[in-house]
């Protein structure tokens, strides 16, 4: 399945869940498919999206969906282990696995040497490169943070 099709299918089902995404094409495609204040795009920090999702899910009743690539999962496998330890019922992890660092040149990753589902409960979707490249997200990081923070903490 093309990555953007997988993202369209995930985002079609999203209602009021918080969504945290990893850097690169995943964040960009989620933005262009369905931007909303409840989305937190991690633009520069590899391996942080799941930790942020865990931090959110620990203190909120609301469901949190974390969408990351295989490279992002590999750079911080420890967070998958922590996720398995905590077993938060309001946290869902989706790994879009194209076995490569597609956002920076398509170099092969080592994801073919591991089964993420053996580390923690997660959904792994095998994806191939999308047919077209969406532009960068035209939001400043502070704007992404502020509207996300407000959607959780207002009221």
């Amino acid at each position: 399945m093309k990555r953007i099709k997988a993202i369209r299918e995930i985002m079609k089902k999203v209602k009021d869940e918080l969504v945290v995404t990893s850097p690169g094409m995943i964040s960009r495609e989620v933005y262009w498919v369905k931007d909303r204040p409840e989305n937190f795009y991690v633009l520069g920090t590899m391996g942080a999206a799941l930790g942020i999702g865990i931090g959110l899910a620990l203190f909120l009743e609301r469901k949190v969906i974390v969408i990351i690539g295989d490279g992002d999962a590999l750079i911080n496998l420890g967070s998958l282990v922590l996720m398995n330890k905590l077993k938060l019922k309001n946290l869902e992890l989706i790994i879009l696995d194209n076995n490569s660092y597609q956002s920076c040149g398509g170099q092969p990753s080592c994801s073919d040497a591991i089964d993420f589902k053996k580390i923690c409960k997660c959904k792994v979707i095998r994806v191939s490169e999308s047919d077209f490249q969406v532009p960068r997200i035209p939001l400043k990081p502070e704007e992404i943070m502020r509207r996300f923070y407000n959607v959780i903490n207002r009221a």
Binding site: I52, G78, S79, I152
Partner: peptide, 16 residues
Amino acid sequence: TSEEEAMALAAGAWLA
């Protein structure tokens, strides 16, 4: 599992 992960959890907790 790492200090950077702790900082990521702290960021999520602050957003919460």
